[in-house]
């Protein structure tokens, strides 16, 4: 039992590891190189990923809700997620199912700057969210 508790504690510590070289108050540049960056303003405040893990993008087939779901951890226990509906490179597409810290956010618009060679990048905004940008790697 003691060994099990120790292993759980170690796993917990590893899972919570912060990358202290990342400044969470600096918005990343708008890029399309697969840099694994994510940032936006929510109510005017900067939220970025990188310090608590890399953001990710995954395509999900769910009928009407199919699309690319972008997820980024922007705090110790805080996430921003949304699903881009029918994303296409060079086009502006809607995003929905947006959430921030378990709060539902308004739907918005995403401009997809790149969706090729395993790179999914673009800029987004909607409602409380503005100046959003992401540059992610995904499995095609």
């Amino acid at each position: 039992m003691k060994h099990l508790l120790l292993i759980c504690l170690l796993l917990f510590c590893v899972a919570c590891e912060e990358n202290e070289s990342v400044d969470p108050t600096i918005m990343p540049e708008v890029t399309a190189t697969g840099a694994n960056t994510f940032g936006c303003l929510v109510d005017g405040w900067v939220y970025t990923s990188g310090r608590w893990g890399l953001p990710n993008a995954a395509y999900e087939e769910r009928g009407e809700d199919s699309g690319m779901t972008v997820s980024a951890q922007v705090g110790f226990d805080s996430y921003i997620r949304f699903t881009v509906v029918a994303p296409k490179a060079g086009e502006t597409c809607p995003y929905k199912n947006a959430s921030f810290e378990n709060q539902k956010l308004e739907d918005g618009q995403v401009y997809i700057s790149r969706m090729s060679d395993g790179v999914f990048s673009g800029t987004f905004e909607g409602g409380r969210v503005s100046k959003g940008r992401f540059d992610l790697k995904y499995k095609e």
């Binding site: 202290e20 070289s21 990342v22 400044d23 108050t25 310090r51």
Partner: peptide
């Protein structure tokens, strides 16, 4: 150390400043 939005973080070997 950086203080922003009521929180404070310590940034060590800052990657934007090459460490």
């Amino acid at each position: 150390s950086v203080r922003y939005h009521g929180q404070k973080w310590q940034v060590n070997a800052p990657e934007l400043s090459d460490g």
